[in-house]
Design a protein around this nucleic acid. Structure first.
Lengths: 332, 332
DNA sequence: ATGATTTAGGTAAACGTTTACCTAAGGGTG
DNA sequence: CACCCTTAGGTAAACGTTTACCTAAATCAT
């Protein structure tokens, strides 16, 4: 049998109220003698407060749900870590959910989180297909989205990254460097980030007064496999290009691999620029020029905003747009 | 106000017991008419059962704690994913905790998890320094360790990988290929896995009747930074070697980078073999020969065993040793 | 000495479920 | 008709806390 507050109260000859007060440091009107007596008993009998019982009365579980597509995707651990760090600092714990970019799973997880009475949810929404929509109508805890901007009602806050300007900066840099025909290996257009990065690509060309060649834009997926395949396809079609702007680093890594295998020299023959700045970009040869995304910051800020909502502090900014940073390395 | 079981009961003109039964599908003796009436009200009023209240009476929270050093280390996301997948299949959710290899944080997290009444804990223990010991004496839920074998009482089960034989196989392979002076960039010896891998390295040499050169063994950390630095140090000291066996892939990646920068050709001049088979090993050039660790499997099996303990099934094996697999690629 | 205030703690309801056990009505059997 | 069984549901305690409000004794000011 686990020791409960009642056991301690009985042994100390006080009421449970008194024990509760000392456990929660609301012991301003408890005599030092009693306090010590209780503390000793707690120690001796290894009393561990049952937080689920507390939650029943306080209506707070001090837990937050984190719903992301896949922790295995190198993009997400940093976000998760940022969330967890801030949460931990404030006494919250985080429940990890992998939605696999599947709206059904996502909805199921959110429902589950609600049943578990989490105090709030941080969500990187799955890419939605046409006609799909995420209904948060029945959720009554704050929801913050991270990285992906979705249009669903009831979202209390957003943390996003300025993808368009990040891409703009990267492509401008390439154009400045003299690249003329920049291939854009895009992510899936069901993802808003992918679209925004494409827009940055376009805008840079426009500002330079350069045309956009249709054959230099290829839509795909956010994976290394696709980067690998995409390059091969373009090469096989005989399309000419002197630089590649990839919608994320995974694509870039795949592309780089494919180019190397074809004997193409990077950056001498063709330059590559990625997006995200995931850890491994510095471990490869040549190190990848890329657009740094502040992932840890995103997670951290999201959690911060969520906790502010939960604790009913005033939240000044409900939409935080984080800046990217172009990191120039040797691949371009 | 959120709808509770009482609201539904009142509106349906039945007792809460009845509603509870239909919600939990224990409705064998509830008439179909009543069942439908209740179901409709649940739908209409968006009744969401409060699982923390359930937990109070059932003594189960259907949550498990996952304590790992750092989700940001590419070694762990796969484990976490394995855990989460199995947990999810069985209706459990997982609470993520990053201990940063800090015993204090680890202990604090475990205490917190206990207060939150998790049903069990999966732990990749932090590397302990001399004299440190993890006291699980006060935990009364099952604890399973993963990857790292620690000696702490009260561990209900272990999932580990046969590090020694993995290393043995890798080094034997190198020796067979004709490498004569194999540098071993080890991890920290506070970590058991690191020691075991070293033992595999030693055993292979012994079986080949070859000597072990002291200067070819260097203890360090499980990071790419250290691999990079370690190689430079060895090179600066003018120590001669023709192959490198790294205690993990991160070290190997760092080492590879350092070698490339010095103009050393891999695998022509020097061969490299790593350990872990993290995702990025296939994205670099040359792709890394490494010892595959079944990380996802580890997490999955750990969760499986934990759930079996929680649900009081008979657990046949309390120590599962997973086999590694040597993956030969181009770096050797 | 009296009334007011402070100190130290107690009382008991409430949080939202589950579940062992009870009951009342109806049906079946001989 | 008397008895038993089944059906359909109800009763109420229990889970372990927290907290608004209460109270009795001691101290203080005048």
């Amino acid at each position: 049998m686990k020791t409960t507050i009642k056991d301690i109260a009985k042994m100390a000859g006080v009421s449970t109220a008194t024990v509760s007060k000392v456990v929660n440091h609301k012991d301003n009107n408890i005599s030092e003698a009693t306090r010590q007596r209780i503390l000793n008993l707690i120690e001796e009998y290894n009393y561990v407060p049952n937080r689920v019982a507390s939650s029943m009365v306080t209506k707070k579980t001090h837990s937050i749900g984190l719903v992301i597509p896949d922790i295995t995707n190198p993009f997400f651990p940093e976000i998760a870590r940022g969330v967890e760090d801030l949460a931990n600092q404030h006494g919250y714990h985080v429940i990890l959910c992998n939605s696999d970019n599947d709206l059904k799973k996502e909805v199921a997880y959110i429902a589950m989180l609600q049943e578990k009475m989490v105090d709030g949810i941080i969500l990187t929404a799955s890419a939605m297909r046409e006609g799909e929509t995420l209904d948060l109508g029945r959720i009554h805890v704050p929801v913050i989205t991270v990285d992906r901007d979705i249009k669903a009602s009831k979202i209390k806050g957003k943390i996003i990254v300025d993808n368009k300007s990040g891409a703009y900066e990267a492509v401008s840099y390439m154009l400045n460097k003299g690249y003329k025909r920049i291939l854009h290996l895009a992510g899936p257009f069901t993802s808003g980030t992918s679209k925004e990065r494409y827009e940055g690509y376009k805008l840079a060309h426009e500002n330079f007064g350069l045309p956009i060649y249709e054959e230099l834009f290829v839509e795909g997926f956010y994976t290394a496999e696709w980067g690998y395949e995409g390059i091969q396809r373009v090469l096989n079609e005989g399309i000419d290009f002197d630089g590649v702007f990839c919608a994320n680093d995974l694509i870039a890594l795949g592309a780089l691999k494919a180019l190397k295998e074809k004997g193409v020299k990077v950056p001498d023959d063709i330059g590559i620029v990625g997006f995200d700045d995931i850890y491994m970009t510095t471990l490869i040869e040549p190190r990848l020029t890329t657009v740094h995304q502040p992932n840890y910051q995103m997670g951290y800020k999201a959690a911060q905003m969520l906790v502010d909502f939960i604790e009913e502090k005033v939240v000044k900014e409900k939409k935080i747009i984080l800046k990217t940073e172009l990191i120039i390395r040797e691949s371009s």
